[in-house]
Design a protein around this nucleic acid. Sequence first.
DNA 1: GAAGATAGCGAACGGTCGTACGTTATCTGA
DNA 2: TCAGATAACGTACGACCGTTCGCTATCTTC
Lengths: 194, 194
Amino acid sequence: MAEAERTRTRIVRAAVDEASRLGLEGLTVGSLARRLGMSKAGLVGPFGSREQLLEAALEHSGKIFWSAVIEPLADLPPGRSRLERLIAAWVDYLADCPFPGGCFVTAASSELDGRPGPLRDRLRSTVTSSRERLAAEVAAAQAELPGPHRPPEEVVTTLIGLSMAANQEIQLLEDPSAPTRAREAMRHAAGLDR
Amino acid sequence: MAEAERTRTRIVRAAVDEASRLGLEGLTVGSLARRLGMSKAGLVGPFGSREQLLEAALEHSGKIFWSAVIEPLADLPPGRSRLERLIAAWVDYLADCPFPGGCFVTAASSELDGRPGPLRDRLRSTVTSSRERLAAEVAAAQAELPGPHRPPEEVVTTLIGLSMAANQEIQLLEDPSAPTRAREAMRHAAGLDR
DNA sequence: GAAGATAGCGAACGGTCGTACGTTATCTGA
DNA sequence: TCAGATAACGTACGACCGTTCGCTATCTTC
């Protein structure tokens, strides 16, 4: 009975891969089934509908980001050095991206931001909780650093923006200097280079 | 004979509007024709194909951005106050966006970054020339400001990133404090608040 | 007022979309 | 050994996709 679960994750993984290239909208049941060598019915079956498959893919992509950027911090106490590592991991994630079409969360955000529905709601909560977590990391680091400081919320916006800009430079412009520039800009924005 | 031209721009305008909500991929000939009260053939005819219609829409959206953010600077000499005005206009553009689904260029960038083709090429050149223009503005402003300065390229990346993050906060998160935060972060990143 | 260009329509095409439904192998437990 | 559950299949469906092609109004211009 665990067979179904393995199939499910196999499908979700392929869906994330495909949707990262073509967008959530661009992912079709037929092409994904063909790619996995199964029937359309067998592909959608475990999820109920294409929409729910997309939800599962979105959730999985969030976990990929989380395990690449957030989880490696677990053995460090909050503070300056943990924010240092977070930024390093984040840039590495962008430079050597687990998604073939660039950061999935960023792409999904652009695609879904004007389309109300469960997908958008799910994404919004992912983004909101990431922002909160990031704000806490920034505040903890600032407490260890000499002031004055920018408001943590502003630093969060700047860091997220830099990740988006770096993603564009890497994916669209194919600029090899993007990761280094992003790292330095992030460290500066976080007050880590003083 | 100018009738055709007026129809063309009418179609392009509607296409930009629709694609800003649904994405370039999500724009279909049928729905756009229905919305404009014309036939599918009559809609695509002036462009040759849907793809070429999308190209025209992409070009038009670039012009909208340009006329909202860059053209108002024409009567100012390069330098600090011109960068001030650029940032103000940019945030206004994001906060009160001419596209119903948020900044079109940002959305198109996410959507096209992994899909080679003429659309991607066109977008890439739009982004590249905007970056160059922006770098020149930053350099001119820095020349009027007390040092030390971050590299102009890094400032450009930060400003573009902040526009993307603000766009997300406005469109996806619907955060009313986003424009103010973006304005302050941009002014800080550009060294204008010292 | 006839001839020709222009601009858009309407119908049809082959193809693909997502979904529904009944069927069939394959495993599981009594 | 055999009944039942499981997991995926194949087929069919109606809807919509983008494109093609011939037609028809509506204007110009002689």
